[in-house]
């Protein structure tokens, strides 16, 4: 037995493939096959041809949904950046203890099921919820309708995805050499110009990482938009689910899924070319 193992490990080329075999076979059957099935359905359901793609790419409903999806993903990414950058900055420049506490809060939020967080926003923004209560307590008469709007779903998605952005930016900021900033200051860089010429470029990799991650996750987001969003402003994943579950329109649903996948892969592909995909998830 031992002999056999050492003999095997000598044949450097065989051993790794043997170790990889189970997982490769598994992914082939339970990842590649279902994916291929989606591709197949998109061009065979209900009849052979590209009519599903034609519909998805030209039909006004689908165009509107995809446009809405991109816009939402873009807005969510920008909001996450707006929300995440200052907090990461604070973490990088406050005492160790405070940074640890904030980090604890963020990891707590990160690890809490996003269903729970979605539900919490439902409570917060509900018609009898604390936000409305606060608005009325401040003396406003009118009860604004917050739930099931673009606002509520965007807000919840920002909350759910912000930790990705914060962690990415924070990890870059943490590594910035303080003496670099000092030397820039000694050369006369101050305030806004110090920030623009030194700090921002140094944190750019974190921003890029976080933005790509947030944008891509947001593109395919299903749960939160479905639960909190306006039914009239669906996002792509929600519509795909709708097509399959309600209308059994497998062809159309699959074609949309493939388009969504295509866009996602193009973005990740560009990222991979520039930075390497393995960096994305830290």
């Amino acid at each position: 037995m031992n002999r056999m193992i050492s003999r095997l490990s000598e044949q450097q080329n065989l051993w790794p493939w043997l170790l990889l075999l189970p997982l490769s076979a598994y992914l082939l059957v339970f990842f590649a096959v279902p994916l291929a099935d989606v591709v197949q359905m998109s061009v065979t359901e209900p009849t052979l041809g590209l009519q599903n793609y034609e519909k998805v790419l030209t039909g006004s409903l689908y165009r509107k949904v995809f446009l809405n999806t991109f816009m939402t993903a873009g807005i969510v990414t920008l909001c996450c950046l707006f929300v995440g950058y200052p907090l990461a900055y604070l973490m990088a420049h406050t005492s160790r203890r405070n940074a640890m506490l904030i980090l604890l809060l963020i990891t707590m939020s990160f690890w809490t099921s996003f269903l729970v967080r979605t539900y919490a926003w439902m409570v917060l923004l509900g018609n009898n919820g604390p936000v409305i209560w606060l608005i009325q307590a401040m003396g406003f008469e009118e009860k604004p309708h917050l739930l099931f709007t673009r606002f509520s779903s965007t807000l919840a998605m920002v909350h759910i995805l912000a930790p990705y952005m914060i962690m990415n930016i924070y990890s870059v900021m943490q590594k910035i050499d303080k003496s670099l900033i000092l030397s820039a200051e000694s050369m006369g860089a101050r305030g806004a110009s110090l920030f623009r010429h030194i700090y921002l470029p140094l944190t750019a990799p974190g921003i890029a990482n976080g933005s790509v991650l947030v944008f891509v996750i947001c593109l395919g987001f299903y749960v939160t938009p479905v639960l909190l969003g306006s039914p009239r402003e669906q996002m792509a994943a929600g519509l795909i689910g709708h097509q399959i579950e309600e209308f059994l329109a497998f062809g159309l649903g699959s074609a949309m899924a493939i388009v969504l996948l295509g866009v996602t892969l193009v973005i990740l592909g560009i990222y991979h070319r520039r930075f390497g995909l393995d960096k994305l998830w830290g």
């Binding site: 992914l27 990842f31 395919g220 399959i244 969504l260 996602t264 892969l265 998830w281």
Partner: peptide, 27 residues
């Protein structure tokens, strides 16, 4: 090796809704 590495990461890159459609049909 590089290709194998990339393949392993793919399930993370594919939106879950896409996989859901595939599993719904194949399973």
């Amino acid at each position: 090796k590089g290709v194998a590495n990339l393949m392993l990461m793919m399930p993370m890159a594919v939106p879950h809704i896409v996989m859901a459609v595939g599993y719904y049909s194949v399973f």
